[in-house]
Amino acid sequence: MHETHSNLADPALSQLPRALSKSAFAKLIAVSPGRVSQMVKQGLPVEADGKIDVARGKLWIAENINPTRAASQAKGPTLFGEERQKASLTEERARLAKEQADAAEIKNAILRKELVHASDVEREWASVLRKVRSGVLAVPSRVRQLLPHLTPHDVEAIDNELRRALEDLAHDE
């Protein structure tokens, strides 16, 4: 009734009992006991005493659980013991390599002047806007020189409207 198998092929399995309860098997493969019950309904082999043969269970999962589904990736049931640690380390190394590549990409973009610091942009725009403000505030005196027939009241009305427009822009959020 019980199949014999060699645990020598997988060192992580040699330290485990040959068969585990559903809850112990669930802990081993990092899923809930309910998920193990679902897998049993899908065909996960169960011994007559209700326990799951670790090697056969692992083989069944590898053959029947879709590794591309989000629920079964990385933390999923196909990773065991040292395999999970190796996968985790590999993922961390990949993440670190990506972060280092991103940092190098940003540094190179700055050197090529494709990216600039936000403070530099802010400083430049503040300078441009100060020049625009000065130019707008100088309009009434230039209009007075170009159109000498305007009364001081007309020039004051132009000045007031330009200042109101600048004030509205300053408070426009």
Rank of each mutant, 00 (worst) to 15 (best):
3 E>N: 08
6 S>E: 06
7 N>I: 15
14 S>G: 06
15 Q>R: 06
15 Q>T: 11
17 P>H: 04
17 P>A: 04
18 R>V: 13
19 A>S: 11
20 L>Q: 04
22 K>Y: 11
22 K>I: 15
27 K>W: 13
29 I>L: 08
30 A>D: 07
32 S>K: 01
36 V>K: 01
40 V>A: 13
41 K>P: 13
43 G>C: 06
45 P>H: 01
47 E>H: 04
49 D>I: 11
50 G>D: 03
52 I>H: 02
57 G>W: 05
57 G>N: 01
58 K>N: 05
60 W>P: 03
60 W>G: 08
67 P>H: 00
68 T>S: 00
69 R>E: 14
73 Q>Y: 02
75 K>C: 06
75 K>M: 07
76 G>L: 09
78 T>P: 00
78 T>R: 00
79 L>G: 03
83 E>K: 04
86 K>I: 10
87 A>K: 00
88 S>F: 15
95 R>C: 07
95 R>K: 05
101 A>S: 01
105 E>V: 01
107 K>A: 12
108 N>M: 12
108 N>H: 12
110 I>Q: 04
110 I>K: 07
113 K>C: 12
115 L>Q: 01
116 V>Q: 02
118 A>F: 13
122 E>D: 02
122 E>G: 08
123 R>T: 10
123 R>N: 06
124 E>V: 09
126 A>N: 01
127 S>G: 08
128 V>M: 06
131 K>E: 04
131 K>D: 08
140 P>I: 11
140 P>L: 07
142 R>H: 02
142 R>Q: 06
143 V>M: 10
143 V>E: 07
146 L>D: 09
147 L>Y: 13
153 H>P: 01
156 E>K: 00
157 A>K: 03
158 I>G: 07
159 D>T: 04
164 R>F: 15
165 A>W: 11
165 A>I: 15
166 L>A: 10
170 A>W: 09
171 H>R: 03
171 H>C: 09
172 D>Y: 09
172 D>C: 09
172 D>V: 01
